[in-house]
């Protein structure tokens, strides 16, 4: 195990404790035990992998996600507040090219927060989506999301 990984995880958990304690230092020894336990548990449950999440794709993914959750919220708000309700829902089956595991789960969960889509089912490599309005360019946006996640996990989509 690389000592550097242990160090950075410890620092992250210490930072998290500082945030949770709202910057107070009077219970620092409880925090220290918590940080040690959390670091140990994280190394046990999620051992360092060969392919790490890289910083630049992560930032780009977060920006993409943030922008699209604003768009998604605005879109659904507009549809809800329209005087005459005008929905044309449909379902869409999409072949996922991401490998099974974390990448696919992230895609499924992110899609529920993106404009126009809610994940309904995932068997093997087919993702079933409920689409709020069939006029939205949902398939194209799902592909864009998939490409972002592929870069994030360094896998070929």
């Amino acid at each position: 195990m690389k000592p550097l990984t242990v160090f950075w995880r410890g620092v992250s958990f210490a930072l998290l404790w500082w945030v949770l304690a709202e910057g107070r230092m009077d219970g620092w020894w409880v925090g220290l035990c918590g940080v040690a336990a959390a670091t140990w548990a994280s190394l046990r449950l999620s051992p360092p992998r060969a392919g790490r999440l890289r910083a630049v794709p992560l930032l780009r993914f977060l920006a993409f996600f943030l922008w699209n959750s604003v768009r998604g919220g605005w879109q659904v708000a507009r549809l809800a507040l329209r005087p005459r309700l005008d929905l044309a829902p449909t379902t869409l089956d999409l072949a996922v090219m991401l490998p099974a595991g974390g990448a696919r789960q992230l895609m499924l969960n992110t899609l529920s927060l993106m404009p126009g889509t809610v994940g309904v089912g995932l068997d093997d490599a087919t993702l079933r989506l409920h689409v709020l309005d069939s006029r939205l360019p949902v398939a194209r946006e799902a592909r864009a999301l998939e490409a972002h996640i592929a870069r994030l996990f360094e896998v070929a989509p």
């Binding site: 998604g72 126009g116 409920h130």
Partner: peptide
């Protein structure tokens, strides 16, 4: 399904 869209997106934003 359509109600989930309203909750998952608008409320989270």
């Amino acid at each position: 399904y359509t109600r989930l869209h309203a909750l998952a997106k608008a409320d989270n934003l």
